[in-house]
Design a protein around this nucleic acid. Structure first.
Lengths: 182, 182
DNA sequence: CTTAAAGTAGACAGAGTGGTCTACCTCTGT
DNA sequence: ACAGAGGTAGACCACTCTGTCTACTTTAAG
């Protein structure tokens, strides 16, 4: 019954599926059955709501991905598992993240294109956090600094190829390269 | 004095910098100093204009990238040169493509998120064309099918890391990995 | 039971949207 | 010289957008 939470989740669903600009505040309201006054009671503006959806997704995504990685042995197995997780995501096998529509952070960055915009910054921080986790595991796997960057590169590449190019096998392809790499 | 061309170029500039939804038709008209009637004389709708900007960028991008690749020896050198070209692009050293704001095709795909949408399809076709060129060079370099996919993965990853993460060295990092790969 | 906070429904304002249309102007080829 | 294509300026239409506000209702705590 937490209205704020309901709003964020519904807004995220719509923004992720159709884009931020394409979805009006009224649609979010209609779909969630919440009054406009309530929304503006919790958020100063649509932009504040967007920021909240980014935080929400960041938390959800990290919890999911890191959870998968931590469920196996640290180091190379964790990294390999991360790409298995991506493959599950692309192909709709992740319950908490059904319907793959690309990376929310990339999509949102495209709409808030100014690098200095707080929302773009939030997206950059998300990527940074993921990179940090990768780096940690790469070190445990005996790789050096630059390898961590390469792994991150593969992750972004796989997401883009799956979404823009429609190649749902891209995570597995990236994983094969990762296997050689480590 | 070709009004259509002027419209497409100006529209591209604005859409690329600020996003398609964020830029109204009137802004395109104001900036280009062209009358609304003229626009609708050439294009049936805003969407048709967007489609034209995608074609325009596709042609420009391919001409530029393939030009750079063809200027050196075929095979591995061409692929290495492609990533040098990306580095130049990210860092604003390409005259025909000043101001790096990520990949137009990724950005537009995010706004026209339905995979079946003709504009999304156009973006997918662009990626496909690039992949084809990469494949051709990979074969000449003695690599197999899967390597071409890996190279494309690196390219997309580099663009995303440069744009969303703000890492302007990402092309060079990808290039280092490519060097090992071939 | 009372009171105060939080929610609801929805009218409304002001700006902006894509797109149409009229009326006029300026080239260019014959 | 003149017809016709293609340009310009901008009013206008119907609609949508974010955000505000009023008036009423529900909920929960002391």
């Amino acid at each position: 019954m937490d209205k704020r939470e309901q709003l964020v989740e519904q807004a995220f669903r719509l923004f992720y599926r159709q884009g931020v600009y394409a979805v009006g505040i009224n649609k979010v309201l209609d779909e969630s059955g919440i009054a406009k006054k309530t929304l503006y009671n919790h958020f100063a503006s649509k932009e504040a709501l967007v920021a909240a959806t980014v935080s929400y997704r960041d938390s959800l995504f990290r919890q999911w991905l890191f959870g998968r990685m931590d469920a196996v042995a640290a180091g190379k197995p964790a990294l390999m598992e991360a790409f298995m997780a991506l493959d599950d995501w692309f192909n709709g096998r992740v319950a908490v993240m059904p319907e793959f529509h690309g990376c929310y952070f990339i999509n949102v960055s495209a709409e808030f294109s100014d690098l200095k915009h707080p929302i773009h910054q939030q997206c950059a921080e998300h990527k940074q956090a993921i990179l940090e986790k990768i780096r940690e595991q790469v070190v445990l796997a005996g790789g050096d600094e630059s390898v961590a960057n390469h792994v991150a590169l593969l992750k972004e590449g796989a997401i883009v190829q799956a979404y823009v190019g429609g190649d749902l096998q891209s995570a597995l392809k990236a994983r094969r390269l990762l296997d050689q790499l480590l």
